[in-house]
Design a protein around this nucleic acid. Structure first.
Length: 427
RNA sequence: GGAGAGGUGGCCGAGUGGUCGAAGGCAGCGGUCUUGAAAACCGCCAGGGCGCAAGCCCUCGAGGGUUCGAAUCCCUCCCUCUCCGCCA
């Protein structure tokens, strides 16, 4: 969330951020609500002060008559306090709702526009020219006995799948490969819970409830299935004050990710591209405010290192304002070439990194103290995909397929897979 | 799941109705001493809100309740630990 105190001061900037994001919010209404909350808070403070004074007077011995009068007055003061409290609570609830609708600021270099208005920063690698009829990953998965969507549908429903044989080796290899890149960079590795409390989910800026939610909730416990380890890694430091010397914190989290994908069926999302469950190695970093832009570039660099090692052609795009999530100040996506996507192949998102500045930290209360300073400041939080297995597997199958339907494993991955080829003829 | 014990400041820990936003210790910061450091000694040091400031308000796991007055008593929930049960 934004800092309530800067709402009126930076009103125009916030309104502009909403505009370029295509978010319709009445900023002035939220500001008005904040002022109403502040006014009632002041009122409450005053009422509390009167009550405290009155209580101090009750400590000394009083004769029965005085005591009775004192008690009656105490009751009246108490009632006044609860009346104001109830009023404040109602106003604050409306303010909180309003505040939650305000998205983060937008980095000045972010291109303005919607999903199609991204800026392409660079391309790496050339889409491969196949000397044969290339197959998509569904067919490669079927003939190589690597993927089984029918079994997934039968047991868990549509958009679930089984990995089999070489795909299982690939799944495990990808995790370890990506993790090694991060370890070399000084990340601390974690395997996190796959479930989290709704408050934590909410704190990271994901709405755990409501029609549009991407988040699964359990029926018999107050828990959500996480959509990403960003949630569990972010929650790790909720409510804490860090030493400046500890920063930046670089965390690598392995978790399963669960997504309802409500309303996301259809085009361009066949097979492994859009599924309800996958495994992901996530990068999560906590920095001082002045370091977050540099860290953002650094995370992007790590993602590129990982995908270059997988020998996948890709492009890097700077996501346009209208396509940013509310917490994101800036977001880069890496799109890998997917030969089986669309007509004759297309680029598809395979990883993503966001700088969320202090937007998540404020709600989670993650602060740090500069050495020599008494004042606590909010940290900046960033996240990025090291490897999302479903899409990585998709891209590997389609890009590294051979004429017989088998899959060549890139050199960097071979030590982890323990094979040079998987799929057709290998199983 | 059952029984018991707990949750207090960055950390540890005292505090069972007003003298408590809270002893003491550790860590941290400033100083004395020292060529320098350590040790010793002195001082400062919870978080958040409002305010130019003085100062005021809130917070002792969370939420309710009792009371003129709650860290302290009662209720609900969450969490941790010990024992028992179950289990990979």
């Amino acid at each position: 969330m934004l800092d309530p105190r800067i709402l009126s001061e930076r009103r125009d900037e916030i309104a502009e951020s909403c505009r370029v994001r295509g978010v319709e919010v009445d900023v002035d209404e939220v500001i008005g609500l904040y002022e109403a909350v502040a006014a009632r808070q002041t009122e409450l403070n005053e009422a509390n002060r009167r009550r405290n004074e009155h209580q101090k007077a009750g400590k000394k011995p009083l004769d029965p008559e005085q005591r009775e009068a004192h008690t009656a007055e105490g009751r009246a003061l108490k009632e006044a306090v609860s009346r104001i409290e109830a009023d404040l609570q109602g106003t604050r609830a409306r303010f909180d709702t309003g505040l939650a609708t305000l998205p983060n600021f937008v980095h000045p270099d972010v291109p303005e526009g919607g999903e199609e208005d991204f800026r392409e920063l660079r391309r790496e690698g050339e889409p491969r020219q196949f000397g044969f009829e290339a197959r998509d990953h569904l067919e490669l998965g079927r003939i190589g006995e690597l993927l089984d969507f029918e079994a997934g549908a039968k047991v868990a429903g549509t958009k679930f799948y089984y990995l089999k044989n070489g795909a299982v080796l690939l799944e495990l290899a990808l995790q370890r490969y990506a993790l090694d890149v991060l370890l070399e960079d000084g990340f601390t590795p974690y395997v996190t819970p796959d479930l989290a409390r709704p408050e934590i989910v909410d704190g990271l800026g994901y709405n755990p409830r409501g029609e549009e939610t991407q988040i699964y909730s359990l029926a018999n416990a107050d828990l959500c299935l996480v959509g990403t380890a960003e949630i569990t890694l972010g929650g790790l430091y909720a409510d804490s004050i860090l030493d400046e010397a500890e920063l930046p914190l670089k965390l690598a989290g392995i978790s399963h990710c669960f997504r309802t994908e409500a309303g996301a069926a259809g085009r361009e999302s066949k097979g492994l591209y859009r599924v309800h469950q996958f495994t992901k190695v996530e990068m999560f970093t906590i920095t001082r405010p002045e370091e977050s832009d540099a860290m953002h570039d650094h995370l992007l660099g790590l993602e590129e290192k990982i995908f270059r090692g997988l020998e996948l052609p890709y492009r890097v795009i700077d996501i346009a304002s209208g396509d940013l999530g509310a917490p994101a100040y800036r977001k880069y996506d890496i799109e890998a070439w997917m030969p089986g996507r669309g007509e004759g192949g297309s680029y598809g998102e395979i990883s993503s990194t966001s700088n969320c500045t202090d937007y998540q930290a404020r709600r989670l209360k993650v602060r740090f103290r500069r050495s020599g300073s008494k004042k606590n400041e909010l940290v900046h939080m960033l996240n990025g995909t090291a490897v999302a297995n479903s899409r990585a597997i998709l891209a590997l199958l389609e890009n590294h397929q051979r004429e017989d339907g088998s899959i060549a494993i890139p050199k960097a991955l071979q030590p982890y897979v323990g094979r040079e080829v998987i799929g057709a003829g290998e199983a």
